[in-house]
Amino acid sequence: MYEAILVCSVALIAVALYGFYSKRHMIKMVISVEILVNAANLLLIAFGAYRAPGYVELLPQSLAILSISSAGGVTAVALALILAVYKVYGTVDVRKLRRLRG
């Protein structure tokens, strides 16, 4: 059971990483970040359950809650930035954001 969750979360990590380098839409990038955070949360919860079967382990779960809320903050900033990008560049294609290079 735990193994399945673990494998699942590793798969989520892979999915997120895939998303990072294949998606050009900025919101999809942010979603990839969210997936990655969720993979971590899942791992936390799974290990929390694994360490203390049948109980609610406070520490990892509170960490997960912390990470969810911080991810919320990050997403908010990200969306604000996407808006700003859209204003300045007129696009949300991340591959168009290539003025900074070299």
Binding site: M29, L36, A39, L43, F47, A71, V74, A78, L81
Partner: peptide, 29 residues
Amino acid sequence: EPVEAGFKYLVMSSAGSALMLSGIAIVYG
């Protein structure tokens, strides 16, 4: 410039945090 750089920074850095968090989770496990 700040917008573009900020977005890149945000995505990479928050991905980094999440990766680190996954690592932390495993260590906890």
